[in-house]
Simulated assay, not measured.
Amino acid sequence: MREVSKMAEAGPVVLIYSDDEPVGQALRFVLGMDGVDVRLCPDAASLLASPVLREAHCLVLKDGPAGVDGCALLRAARARGARAPAILLVSLFTASLGARAAEAGVWLVLERPIMDNRLIDAIMDCVTSHRRQLLSTNT
């Protein structure tokens, strides 16, 4: 039997790549009430260099800041060992974007602005799904 990582035992970690710091801080507050450790990454380089990238339970990627393609960023994160499901936030969903997201392995695409709890619910579902996957592969 393999050991579950210390990160998985400590609580779920969510990495959020977004240039919208107030939204990131609000997510950190709300999710933190449920024991989720939210790490905000203001740029692609900080997400890819994050020491918890490989251990994260969920990646939230905003498509578009500074011209960054969220699907390309996910592929780069996967190349660095990230296994967590990813949620892609977009300003306009199109069929071609949906196809690119599916090809990149995006777990869920959400169109902004998000005026209800869909993002929080999606993050918690993502965390739960990834924890189950970790437990099933570590037993």
Rank of each mutant, 00 (worst) to 15 (best):
C126H: 04
L108R: 14
R39C: 09
S50W: 05
F93L: 15
C71K: 00
S129R: 13
S91D: 15
V60P: 04
L59F: 06
T137A: 11
A104E: 06
L92Q: 10
A82L: 09
A10D: 14
G35A: 14
V106N: 10
A79V: 00
A45G: 09
D116H: 09
C126Y: 04
C58F: 02
L59V: 04
C58M: 07
C41L: 07
N117A: 15
L108I: 10
T94Q: 09
G32C: 11
K6S: 14
E103L: 12
R112D: 02
L134S: 04
M124P: 02
V106W: 06
G81T: 08
F93G: 08
V109E: 01
E9W: 13
S46I: 08
D43W: 05
R131A: 10
D37M: 09
L97T: 03
I87T: 02
D37Q: 12
S50G: 09
I114C: 03
P85Y: 02
D43S: 10
A72V: 06
D63P: 01
K62G: 01
I123K: 03
L110W: 03
A101N: 10
R80G: 07
C41G: 07
S129Q: 13
L135T: 08
Q25T: 09
V52N: 08
V68S: 03
L88C: 01
K6G: 10
P22L: 08
H57S: 15
R83M: 12
P22Q: 11
A77L: 07
N138R: 13
R112C: 01
A122W: 01
L74N: 01
A104I: 03
V4C: 15
V4Y: 13
L53T: 09
I123F: 10
G24S: 08
G105A: 08
I114T: 04
L48Q: 07
W107T: 04
D125F: 05
A99Q: 12
Q133E: 15
L135A: 15
P12S: 15
D19F: 00
R28P: 05
E55C: 04
A72Y: 01
M1C: 12
L61K: 02
R78E: 08
P65W: 07
R100G: 02
R131T: 11
S96L: 05
L108W: 10
A99Y: 02
L31D: 04
W107R: 09
L47Y: 05
A76T: 04
S18H: 01
L40M: 13
G32F: 07
P113Q: 06
E3T: 12
D19N: 13
A101I: 01
E21I: 11
I87E: 01
T139Y: 12
E111R: 05
R118W: 03
A49C: 06
E55L: 06
R54Y: 00
L53R: 07
D116P: 04
D121T: 14
C41H: 06
D37A: 11
M124H: 14
L110Q: 05
G70A: 07
G24Q: 01
F29H: 14
L110V: 02
N138K: 13
N138P: 00
D69A: 07
A56I: 10
E55A: 11
P12G: 15
C71G: 05
